[in-house]
Design a protein around this nucleic acid. Sequence first.
DNA 1: GCATCCTGGTTGAAGGTTCAACAACGGCCG
DNA 2: CGGCCGTTGTTGAACCTTCAACCAGGATGC
Lengths: 161, 161
Amino acid sequence: MRWLSAEEQQVWRAFMTAVTKFTEHLDRQLQRDSGMPMAYYEILVALSEAPERSLRMSELAAVCHSSRSRLSHAVARLEKEGWVERQACPSDRRGSIAVLTDVGFGVLEQAAAGHVTAVREHLFDVLTPEQLRSLAEISQAVDAGLTTECAKVRREEFADL
Amino acid sequence: MRWLSAEEQQVWRAFMTAVTKFTEHLDRQLQRDSGMPMAYYEILVALSEAPERSLRMSELAAVCHSSRSRLSHAVARLEKEGWVERQACPSDRRGSIAVLTDVGFGVLEQAAAGHVTAVREHLFDVLTPEQLRSLAEISQAVDAGLTTECAKVRREEFADL
DNA sequence: GCATCCTGGTTGAAGGTTCAACAACGGCCG
DNA sequence: CGGCCGTTGTTGAACCTTCAACCAGGATGC
């Protein structure tokens, strides 16, 4: 098996450190200022951008890169807060539709201000335009690599049957 | 307040998606193949590289960018598995020293193989050498930005008193 | 129609993280 | 010495995520 070279290790650790500290910072900021973790914020964002501010649970899960189970728990909490409501799906009686309430929208607006500021301050403001372009490319490449990987896994699972 | 431009939003989402999927993939791989989350793996790595394969809890927490509380819980679990032991610190009676056991070292060796493979496959193999250099720079910049931020926060806390 | 399988969504338990509170010890200064 | 403060580490509760199990409803094939 091929290990990482000294240089690779260095990049790897720098990357993980930066990502860990960065996401931790954002999470803490949101939790402190708006009482929700980032995953919940993403849910509200996704709903706010959807037509009628509503999405079926499975679509919402796809948009948020979240498991159905996680989303179910999360929406339960958001519903308890009064930020989201669940409606029955008319076309499919299994379905459940999450709708962002007005209260939820207001909370989101408040939360977004601080969140965007934090993102700008610690990401966009510390990078040059060129680094930003690089970051976009890199993210794209990593994402693509994982997507093909998922396809591969699915093929393998399929082969098992 | 300044919002994100359309381009910035695009970069931001691509970045978050890539990071989320990437770390999730690594975490799942480790959990499946070695029965531990990545945070625990990092603890074992840190110990394995320390002299005597041991570190004081607070130093270990610093190396792993972990809170003391989290580390305490984590080491409790690792100890239950027999991968780590706790020893009293001779120079400071408050102190606790975590030591990687031989069993733990063996587990780490096993885990490392799959983990490194996954990292190589989804990070190093999908990036060009130039992108890799960029990523190192970017990580460095973000980390630096957060470090100065932490210093700022500490100054503010200090100012409060 | 009905048996079968797949999909959408929820649930509960187990494990991990965070936060606040706490106990125990070291260090400092009177 | 003795009081005070800062540090070290642990603990328990609350919360979030994961995983496996499950129910209900659609879809498919006979």
